[in-house]
Simulated scan of single mutants.
Amino acid sequence: MAVSAEDFDHRCEPCLVIDQQIEAHGFCVDCQEYLCKNCFSYHQRIKATKHHHLVNKDNMAKHAVIKESDECTEKCQVHKKEVIKFFCPKHEALGCKDCIVLDHRACDIDYIPDKCTGIGDSAEFREVLRELDQKVNEVEDIIKLAACRENELDSCHDRLIKEITMFRKEINDRLDQLQKQIQTDVDRKKFTDKQAVKNVVETCTNISSDIKQRQSRLQDYKASQQNGQLYIILKQAKSKLKSEEIKEADRSLEKTNMQYTFEQNQDLEDMLSRQNAFGKLALSSSL
């Protein structure tokens, strides 16, 4: 009956790197690493490890030292159920055994539990802390600059709104002045024409009154048979009939016969119809 990987007490750790689940049959005290038969034999042959202290399966438990501080517990972001135990120096990538098999099979891989001892006292640790401190200072400088920039933006905005408002007031004041001038011209024209109409009415009223008076006197002198006076009044009436007063009054009235209209300034109308007639927002390179 086949034995599953779950039934193993210990697995060969070098073989785990290449995703092979092989039961451990020995242990290297120096490497603190479980080995299968093939890796155990290979460990004895190569120059770098042939002098290591190797023990068989029965004595593995006596020599295995489990350092909790060297254990890896961080879960892999890609393979959620696996723990990160390896680092690829070539690609500067952390990964679990699945990552190593899939993406870094040909790379020279660091096994983290072997490499992490004393990492807190290393130059790399100190250098990273120094660089992190430097980054924190850089971030804080940017935060201060951002706060300053926020105040500058508020000031710039307030100044811009003030300029827009002042410009609008100048336009309004100028338009009010121009409107007042036109209205003054309109009022003057109205007054002049109404005065002309009034004069025509007065003239025509006087003419009418004079004619009626002459008619009355002609009738009275005829009735009283005062022929001498009748003759004089009759000749005066005929002379009056030749007068141009009525025609002149009519001509004066005709001059007032016009419709007032307002012609808008076409240039101003065209300008206001443009998109940026009032102005536009201009951006400079910096505050």
Rank of each mutant, 00 (worst) to 15 (best):
K115E: 14
Q32F: 01
Q275P: 11
V101M: 08
A24K: 07
A5T: 07
L129C: 08
H63Q: 11
E138I: 14
E269P: 00
S69I: 04
F125W: 08
T203G: 12
H53E: 08
A61W: 07
S224L: 12
S155D: 10
V55I: 12
Q226E: 14
K189F: 00
A196D: 11
L35G: 02
A223V: 07
A2N: 02
D30K: 11
I207Q: 10
L241P: 05
E163A: 07
E140S: 12
L287G: 06
R217C: 00
E6Q: 12
E254A: 11
V78L: 04
L145F: 08
A147P: 01
R174K: 12
D133A: 09
Q32G: 02
E33K: 07
E74C: 02
Q236I: 13
D270L: 06
E248Y: 04
D187E: 11
A24F: 01
V17A: 12
I18T: 15
Q183V: 07
I22L: 14
L175G: 00
Y231T: 14
C28G: 09
R149D: 12
T203I: 08
F86L: 14
T117Y: 10
D19Q: 13
H63G: 01
H25S: 14
K242F: 13
I171G: 00
I119R: 12
Y34E: 01
G26W: 02
H52M: 04
E140T: 13
A282V: 11
L35F: 00
I161L: 09
D185L: 07
D210E: 03
Q264P: 03
Q236H: 15
S208G: 03
F87Y: 15
V3T: 07
K255L: 08
G118N: 13
I119S: 14
C15T: 09
H79K: 01
Q219L: 05
R45A: 07
Q215M: 09
F191T: 09
K97R: 10
I142K: 14
A282I: 07
K37P: 00
D193F: 04
K238L: 02
R174T: 11
S122I: 05
M1G: 05
M271H: 15
D9R: 15
L132R: 12
Q20W: 02
D98M: 09
L287A: 06
D121S: 15
Y111G: 10
A24P: 06
L283R: 02
I233T: 15
A48V: 03
C39N: 10
E71A: 06
D19R: 13
K37Y: 06
Q20A: 10
K162V: 00
D30M: 04
D267V: 04
F40A: 03
V201K: 15
K238C: 10
G120I: 13
L129K: 13
C15V: 09
P113W: 03
S216Q: 12
D114L: 09
K242T: 15
Q183K: 12
T256P: 03
K255H: 07
Q179Y: 11
D267I: 03
K238A: 12
Q177N: 11
